[in-house]
Amino acid sequence: MSAQRVFAVLLYLYPNDYSALFAGEMIIAFQQGCNEHRIQGRAPFVRFVIAELAGLIIRMPAEWIAKLTTDTSTRGRALPDLRKMRPAGVPYELWFAAAGMNYRQTSLPLEVAQAQERVTFLMNAMVHAINNHDFQAARSYSYEEYRQRDKVELLKKKYGLEQ
């Protein structure tokens, strides 16, 4: 098994989002390093490979700890959320048409469905803020949610959906 292959296999053991973003670049950087050290002789090449593989193994728990302890919103700024990525081969139009399916499946008018979605979003944001002990933000989400619920009620009245 070549050094590159071992390196690539070790990268599979890293968190999914991390390897999805960096694996390609890391393999290229490792290959460039290998090529450079191979010219210098066998001993520097072996030393380089051992140090790189050991470094990769040592960093692995740190990356898992970072994944498990970092807030998803913070991590999502840099690393892709694989669950939200459009799978290969699925056309752009089809993927985003499917994203709007919830609105079409319900019998509610679009305006009401969107307002209800907003209530759910605000509730989740409030719970998230409470979990992070950010009570000021939680209060503002709670106030916004209260207003949004009133809006839903008004919209239901408008469309005759009070029952």
Binding site: F22, E25, M26, G33, E52, G55, R59, E63, A66, L79
Partner: peptide
């Protein structure tokens, strides 16, 4: 810098 160290720092 090793590749793992570099990309860990870049991620942060």
């Amino acid at each position: 810098l090793r590749t793992g160290t570099l990309y860990g720092a870049l991620r942060r």
